[in-house]
Simulated assay, not measured.
Amino acid sequence: MITPLIHYIQEHATFPLSETDISLLEEAFIPKKLRKRQFLLQEGEVCKYIAFIVKGATRQYTVDEKGYEHVLNLCIENWWTSDRESFHKETPSIYNIDAWEETELLLLPKANGYYERVNIIPAFNEMRIKLDDNQHMAVQKRLNMAQNYTADYRYEELTKLYPEFLQRFPQHIIASYLGITKETLSRIRHQHLKKAS
């Protein structure tokens, strides 16, 4: 199960992985399977793992006082998921992370010093820095989109950047991720279908 992670690291780093590095990765990462709707993390828990998705899909969300879900992140194969603030500060999370499909993960725990040891691997560290930069840019772009662009434009961008999301997640989750109502999303999708035909 570690093979997809090794390939991923090698694709995102210029440093090679040595046999010792691969052995440490095999020792450090814990395989985990989640059923659909099973939680990886629940609000109020401290996040103990950074998770690499081998197969499946997850969503990260909050629930407001009225019981409405607000989706922050959607993740699929070869993506990472966790609450980084809770993980690093060891504070209770405000997020839920659950599987939207049958999901296979590789978990990197903070306990037993594995996180620190894996980060010393040059290829892993290089990959992590690139991912941090990409994540920062993606968050900036998403905030800008939410503040300055129409729902139609946000949907257009989603179809270009992550078309697989539209196949893997239902409309109500996509709508929440875009920060719009289900009705607005339904209208936009209907207009897009009319244009395409």
Score class of each variant (00 low, 15 high):
129 I>H: 14
96 N>F: 15
68 Y>K: 11
121 I>L: 08
159 T>K: 13
108 L>F: 04
84 R>T: 08
50 I>H: 13
76 I>H: 02
56 G>Y: 05
125 N>W: 02
76 I>E: 05
52 F>W: 07
53 I>S: 00
93 S>P: 03
166 L>S: 03
109 P>M: 03
166 L>I: 15
75 C>T: 08
130 K>A: 11
47 C>K: 02
155 Y>G: 02
155 Y>S: 06
97 I>H: 06
115 Y>E: 14
70 H>Y: 13
130 K>T: 04
160 K>P: 01
100 W>T: 09
76 I>S: 03
160 K>N: 08
122 P>L: 09
43 E>W: 04
123 A>L: 04
63 V>F: 03
107 L>I: 03
131 L>G: 10
76 I>T: 05
100 W>Y: 14
133 D>I: 07
117 R>D: 13
96 N>Q: 04
82 S>H: 03
105 L>G: 05
167 Q>P: 06
137 M>S: 11
94 I>C: 11
40 L>S: 02
167 Q>F: 06
93 S>I: 03
105 L>H: 05
92 P>N: 08
111 A>R: 07
146 A>G: 12
74 L>P: 01
166 L>K: 07
144 N>I: 10
93 S>Q: 06
125 N>H: 08
128 R>A: 14
67 G>M: 01
163 P>Q: 09
63 V>W: 04
100 W>D: 09
134 N>R: 15
162 Y>K: 09
167 Q>R: 10
57 A>T: 05
160 K>Q: 11
111 A>C: 02
92 P>L: 11
134 N>L: 10
50 I>F: 11
156 E>Y: 13
162 Y>A: 05
158 L>V: 03
71 V>L: 02
79 W>T: 08
154 R>F: 07
43 E>H: 03
159 T>V: 10
71 V>S: 02
95 Y>R: 04
78 N>W: 04
87 F>H: 05
82 S>G: 01
39 F>M: 08
44 G>R: 04
99 A>E: 02
119 N>Y: 09
65 E>W: 07
140 Q>H: 07
146 A>I: 15
152 D>Y: 07
73 N>E: 10
102 E>P: 06
82 S>R: 02
75 C>Y: 05
132 D>T: 10
136 H>L: 15
55 K>D: 10
83 D>M: 06
129 I>P: 03
